Simulated assay, not measured.
Amino acid sequence: MDTKLKVLIHGTGFAGQGHADAFRSAGAEVVGIVGRTPSVLAEVAAKMEIPYSSTDWQAALQTCKPDIVSIATPGGAHYEPIKQAIEFGCHVFSDKPLTASGETSAELYQLAKQKGVKTAFAASFRYMAHILHAKQLVASGAIGEPVEVECISHFNLERDIPFGWSHRKEDGGGRLNNNFTHMISIVTSVIGEKILAIAGDVRDDLGKAPIVEGVHNFKTRRDFIPKDLNDPALEWGESNVEWSYTVLAKLESPFASKPVSALFKHGGLTPKFDENHIVFYGTKGAIFIKGHYGMGPLYFWDKNETWQELPIPQEIAEDLPNITGDTERNWHFLAREFVKDIRGEAFTPYPSFKEGSQYQQLIDLIRNNNNWTDVSHLQ
């Protein structure tokens, strides 16, 4: 395949612009962009030198005839554009969550399989350097058989971030959609992709958020927090989704004879006292990575029963895109491998709609919150 693959972007915010940069870096041609707000759309298309822009997704598909579409809008707006793109015969790269429900995510996964198009799902923090290193260490037997994983994070997010999609279940909001999707992808990439069992609890400890106009970029939403939160004229929107979660999972691992236990504990609004972290425990050692998404550094508990900081192996460092920003670099990594696959070249396996569909069905189960046994009657 000698001609450049053509990419159409859906979304003009941080993710849309990041996806466009990632595909250009991968050697594809960004031929168009679709957005909701004409003024923002025109500004972004001009800034990024994208030749075609439209507020009409179907018209853009017909006009641009893309090989790949990149979906970079909030999760609640994914279903129809993805379905239309698949039916049009496009390969699809989608940010998380895949859709707002397990049912619609499963439908899109099956439709993509039937149409024979390739899909990529951007639960892409599995490409952090220290996560790739941990994967290498576990596969080499450095910690023996893995037995347990612990993922702990507290974000202390501002409670008064303007009301928007992140507050609404139907729009793809919630910490499960926007944090757990990355965490489960990280853990399965290291331990093994087969999830055997799941249980969880969620909590909405936010309640409400101020309604503010003008927020178009998720990364700059903090800039719109009202200065006077006691203003009687201020309107408030009600959150209907979780801001904290606790999930337990059992994973099958090719490196272990028994299922591996995994704990995912996340508080979106609560402060951390010590480092957020990810730990992989084994029968002969352990790997501790600082940072909620494995930012590092990485420490290895060895046979001498001491923690030693390990540097990133040179081959991993050299394979990472030379991009500032963890989110952006991970998009570049995933887009690069996706393009290689489409072009028929050797590629590193990546998460697809199979994982996106599975994760969304898991999230539905966790949100049902029916894992409790009533013991109030016990004496």
Rank of each mutant, 00 (worst) to 15 (best):
M1Q: 13
D2Q: 14
G11V: 02
T12Q: 03
G18R: 01
F23C: 06
V30M: 07
R36K: 15
V40F: 03
A59W: 05
A60E: 05
D67F: 08
D67V: 08
I71T: 04
T73N: 09
T73D: 07
Q84L: 12
A85Y: 00
G89N: 09
V92L: 10
S94M: 05
P97R: 00
E103Q: 13
S124R: 04
L132A: 06
H133P: 00
V147S: 12
E150M: 14
L157T: 07
R159Y: 11
D160T: 07
F180I: 08
V187A: 02
G192N: 07
E193A: 08
E193M: 04
I195Q: 02
A197H: 12
A197T: 10
A197S: 14
R203L: 09
A209N: 05
A209K: 03
I211G: 03
V212A: 10
D223T: 12
D228S: 13
P232R: 13
S244W: 03
S244G: 15
V247F: 06
A249G: 10
K258W: 03
V260W: 03
V260C: 08
V260N: 04
S261E: 11
A262D: 01
F264M: 12
H266E: 11
G268R: 04
P271F: 10
H277V: 09
F280G: 01
K290E: 13
H292I: 11
D302E: 15
I312F: 04
Q314D: 14
E315G: 03
E315A: 12
R336K: 14
K340W: 07
D341I: 01
F347A: 05
P349L: 09
S357F: 04
Q361R: 15
R367C: 14
N369D: 15
S376G: 14
Q379S: 12
